[in-house]
């Protein structure tokens, strides 16, 4: 982990900054109850739609509630939904991908079903699923996870198909190791990097999908604040209280952008071709520095 963070700071400073932004957002969400913030549901009709000030750095909403406090408390719900989607879709996608990649008989039918799910536009499928299941955080997590797990399954299947042919897996089969051990110890452990990268992208997509569903009135219902339902409440006040619209949106953009940057950086740092290229360049530089000695200092 320390090695990864050091490599991130050295080779991808923007991604390292994204990790810091994510850390701040997660810490603020976790520590929200102990931060010196007004209660997110405290009404103050005398301070209705007040612009940003020292008392309310992000201004107030249509009920005089503190926007900064609501943005921070929304992070708890939105991040939990994103995390829930990431866990469910990664678990389901990993199981489906391992089974499809390892067992030839399951592969064909499983892939047809997954292709069918992927051929349906993501947001429409999420809307249809929420419409059928009913609104609420749990149903939203199930709906969004169902939309994104086929992509994870495809990635795990591709890794499984490649790893299945490798000598160490064939050796494990020859040694009589059980399928469960081969799949978990030998295949899954070696397929973790693309899975982690995909998980960060699913997390980011889930936050966007949650925001869109909440904005359409199909996500978590008020008074529980989420970034999406804050924007749903705020959009009619865009002319009179733009801060009410700007800050929840900035929170979404910062979180999603940071997750995408971190995902990109993990992919690049762990990419075997990129790693091989970097090692080749470093070796060439070393050879060059040996072949061309530095001029002696006068």
């Amino acid at each position: 982990m320390e090695h990864f963070l050091r490599a991130l700071v050295r080779r991808r400073p923007i991604a390292a900054a994204a990790v810091a932004v994510l850390a701040v957002i997660v810490l603020a969400a976790v520590l929200a109850p102990v931060l010196a913030l007004p209660a997110p549901d405290r009404f103050d009709m005398s301070a209705r739609l007040a612009p940003p000030s020292l008392a309310h750095p992000f201004g107030t909403d249509n009920f005089g509630r503190d926007v900064l406090s609501r943005v921070v408390y929304s992070a708890r719900v939105s991040l939990l939904i994103g995390l829930g989607v990431m866990v469910v879709s990664t678990a389901a996608g990993t199981l489906a991908g391992l089974a499809a990649g390892y067992y030839r008989r399951i592969d064909g039918p499983a892939m047809r079903v997954l292709d069918g799910l992927m051929s349906f536009p993501a947001i429409l499928l999420a809307i249809a699923l929420v419409a059928a299941l009913g609104v609420g955080a749990r149903n939203e997590i199930i709906a969004i996870a169902l939309v994104y797990f086929p992509r994870t399954a495809r990635i795990v299947r591709a890794s499984t198909l490649t790893l299945k042919q490798r000598a160490f897996v064939e050796a494990a089969v020859a040694l009589g190791e059980g399928d469960r051990r081969i799949l978990t110890v030998h295949i899954l452990r070696n397929a973790l990097t693309p899975l982690i990268v995909q998980s960060t992208f699913v997390f980011a997509e889930a936050i966007l999908a949650d925001a869109a569903l909440s904005f359409l009135g199909l996500g978590v219902r008020p008074p529980t604040p989420t970034w999406g339902n804050m924007l749903d409440d705020a959009h009619i006040y865009i002319e009179t209280a733009p801060w009410f619209v700007v800050f929840p949106g900035v929170a979404i953009v910062l979180t999603v952008l940071s997750l995408n940057l971190v995902g990109d950086a993990v992919r690049d740092l762990a990419d075997p071709y990129a790693v091989a290229g970097r090692r080749a360049r470093a070796a060439r530089d070393r050879r060059l520095s040996r072949a061309v000695p530095k001029p002696a200092q006068e």
Binding site: H235, V253, V256
Partner: peptide, 9 residues
């Protein structure tokens, strides 16, 4: 990274 509805607003 930008939600389309927020960009529209």
């Amino acid at each position: 990274s930008i939600p389309s509805f927020w960009l529209g607003l």
